[in-house]
Simulated scan of single mutants.
Amino acid sequence: MPHPGWSTFSFEGIGTQWEISTPDSLVPAVRREVLETVAAYDKTWSRFRPDSLVSGLSRGPGIITLPEHAVALQKLYSVLYRLSDGAMTPLIGSSLERLGYDAGYALVPSGNPLAPPRWEDVLDWTGTDLAAKEPVVLDVGAAGKGQLVDLLGEILLATDHTDFLVDGSGDMLHAGSDPVTVALEHPYNPRQAIGTVELNNSALCASASNRRTWGDGLHHVLDGTTGEPIHTTVATWAMAASALVADGLATALFMLEPARLEEEFDFSWLSVSSSGVAAFSTGFEGRLFT
Rank of each mutant, 00 (worst) to 15 (best):
L256H: 04
P67F: 05
V277C: 07
G100N: 00
A29F: 14
F48Y: 13
G168D: 06
P23T: 07
C205K: 04
G15M: 03
E120D: 06
G168S: 13
V272T: 09
A132K: 00
D216Q: 15
E228C: 11
P67E: 10
P90C: 09
P113V: 02
T22K: 07
P187V: 11
A142D: 04
D102P: 00
L26N: 12
S271L: 13
L261P: 08
F289R: 07
G153A: 05
T8R: 08
V71D: 03
L57W: 00
P2H: 03
V54E: 01
I92S: 04
N210I: 05
L261H: 04
A206K: 12
S242F: 07
V122F: 02
G127Q: 05
E257L: 08
F164A: 05
W119K: 02
T159Q: 14
E97R: 09
T37I: 14
L148W: 06
L123K: 01
G146T: 12
G104R: 03
R211V: 11
V137I: 14
A70W: 02
L99A: 01
F280A: 03
D42P: 10
L107S: 00
N189V: 07
V272Y: 00
A39T: 12
D85Y: 11
K75N: 12
M172A: 02
L96Y: 01
H220C: 12
D139V: 09
F48A: 04
T22M: 10
A240W: 06
E120M: 01
I194R: 06
R47I: 08
W45L: 15
A183R: 15
Y105S: 03
H219C: 13
K75R: 14
K43I: 01
A158F: 02
P50N: 09
T236P: 10
R82I: 03
L138I: 14
G248N: 07
V197A: 01
V221W: 01
K133M: 07
P50W: 11
E228P: 06
I63R: 13
E228R: 15
Q192N: 09
H69E: 15
L156Q: 05
R212H: 15
P179D: 12
L114A: 13
L130Q: 00
P23S: 05
L114D: 01
A203W: 02
G224T: 10
P50K: 09
T162H: 13
D129C: 08
V277Q: 12
W125M: 01
I230E: 15
T159H: 14
A29S: 15
S209Q: 13
K75F: 09
H219D: 09
S7P: 05
G104L: 04
V180L: 11
S94W: 09
V38N: 08
A203L: 05
D51Q: 07
V122T: 03
A240T: 03
V166F: 12
R31E: 13
D178P: 00
G15Q: 05
A72L: 10
P258T: 07
